[in-house]
């Protein structure tokens, strides 16, 4: 069951960028770690983004972050700050950069890079503990990154 959903995730994210997509190695970050342009040109789907943020086999962002808007997702973590209000604190370009590779914004952060395929030490084949058979896929696809960013943009401060 767990294995099946992981394999599915790998199949969906795919190794190769689709036509018109910015591939992981071609992403242009600003000096502050933002990504100005959409990775796909297709607007993000916030509802799908919400699913990705909560789903263990996808972004699993709630492993480390608390998100009040996803109150129905159990066991939200405390490793990172709450994402409530992230859409007020950050611009869309900044959030895209944060999700793609947070280390460009926060030097040395614990947060993993979700749109990166190289520069790892002993990368594995997902969660098998084995060496990968071929080139790595990013953890999230370009469109999934856009969907997550769209969801984060809906997380506004109450006031």
């Amino acid at each position: 069951m767990k294995l099946a959903s992981l394999t599915l995730a790998a199949a969906l994210t795919g190794g190769v960028a689709l036509a018109g997509e910015v591939a992981p190695k071609e992403v242009a970050f600003t000096e502050d770690g933002a990504i100005e342009a959409s990775l796909t040109g297709t607007p993000g789907d916030a509802a799908n983004g919400a699913m990705i943020v909560g789903e263990k086999s996808k972004g699993n962002c709630v492993a480390c972050h608390q998100v009040s808007a996803l109150a129905d997702v159990p066991f939200q973590g405390e490793v990172g700050p709450s994402l409530d209000g992230a859409g007020s604190r950050w611009s869309e370009a900044e959030l895209r950069g944060l999700v793609a590779n947070a280390k460009k914004t926060f030097d040395g952060t614990v947060m993993p890079a979700f749109y990166k395929v190289d520069g790892f030490i002993r990368p594995g084949d997902a969660y098998t503990g084995k060496a990968p058979a071929g080139p790595l896929s990013p953890i999230l696809s370009a469109q999934e990154i856009e969907d997550v960013v769209a969801f984060l943009m809906t997380l506004k401060d109450e006031s």
Binding site: P123, G124, A126, Y127, G129, A131
Partner: peptide, 12 residues
């Protein structure tokens, strides 16, 4: 140790 390294999506 093996389980923890595996959970980083690493080759253990």
């Amino acid at each position: 140790f093996k389980g923890c390294v595996r959970d980083t999506r690493a080759e253990t």
